[in-house]
């Protein structure tokens, strides 16, 4: 990547500007995920409501990124590394916006779940899974800012841990539901929450792919084994 500045310094300011918006979005999404997880664990409906409200800020930032990128493309006609920067910014803002939506959905389900009896034993696993995804997100954004392909690759590989945690939770929820049908509603909500967190991991992976593309000009090889086997492996449903 170029450390050198553009002859037109306003171009540098434009690129820095859109990337600053991405970092701002990233910060809000990290907070949303950790708040949503805490709200779920503590049955804190007030905090869950706050996560839902704050999603509007993330959505607004995504729109701002899109219009800023459109302006930069129109005015600067970026090429090479500059072009890849604006394209990756656009894609990453989409990933972050979706992650924000999943956090918001956690908030919504938390409000419903807080009115039901707690399902014992699943809280810790969900918390660990959410924490793992949040650390992955932080590292992915660091990799983006540092243009660190190695770190991005490392984060990409970590997504299989998230998938495995989801597989384990899937079985656990099935067990709870079979043990006592009164758990079904709560377990379905918890299952959707786990699935949402698993999807967040996929979006982090996509951000890491953008880092590789931004730095190398090529998308990474699909050298990553998908570990979410719940949709293909019927044995996972046997408890």
């Amino acid at each position: 990547m170029m450390d050198q500045e553009h002859i037109a310094s306003a171009f540098d300011r434009d690129l820095e500007g859109v990337q600053a918006l991405i970092m701002q979005m990233g910060g809000l999404v990290e907070t949303a995920i950790s708040d949503a997880a805490r709200a779920l664990e503590m049955r804190d409906t007030e905090l869950a409501e706050q996560v839902r409200r704050n999603d509007k800020l993330i959505d607004a930032l995504e729109e701002q990124v899109a219009s800023e990128v459109a302006r930069v493309i129109a005015v600067r006609a970026p090429t090479a590394g500059d072009l890849r920067t604006v394209l990756s910014v656009l894609k990453i803002s989409g990933n972050l916006e979706r992650m924000g939506d999943y956090a918001k959905n956690l908030g919504k389900r938390t409000s419903v779940l807080s009115e039901m009896p707690a399902i014992t034993g699943t809280g810790g696993a969900l918390r660990r899974m959410t924490q793992l995804v949040n650390v992955m997100l932080k590292d992915a954004l660091d990799a983006y800012i540092q243009r660190d392909v190695e770190l991005a690759e490392d984060v990409r590989q970590r997504d299989s841990e998230v998938d495995q945690m989801y597989n384990a939770l899937f079985r656990e929820f099935l067990t709870h539901m079979m043990e006592d049908p009164r758990n079904i509603t709560a377990c379905m909500h918890l299952h959707f929450i786990a699935k949402n967190v698993e999807r967040m991991g996929d979006h982090v992976t996509s951000i890491c792919e953008q880092v590789v593309y931004l730095v190398t000009g090529d998308m990474p090889d699909e050298g990553r084994e998908k570990q979410d086997r719940t949709s293909t492996d019927s044995a996972l449903g046997k408890v």
Binding site: M2, Q4, E5, H6, I7, A8, F11, P78, T79, A80, G81, D82, L83, R84, G217, D218
Partner: peptide, 18 residues
Amino acid sequence: FTNPEDSRTESYITGRIG
């Protein structure tokens, strides 16, 4: 124009050297 090999090419086409 998307991924030049040489850093001097990149500098020129992205407006960093005249």
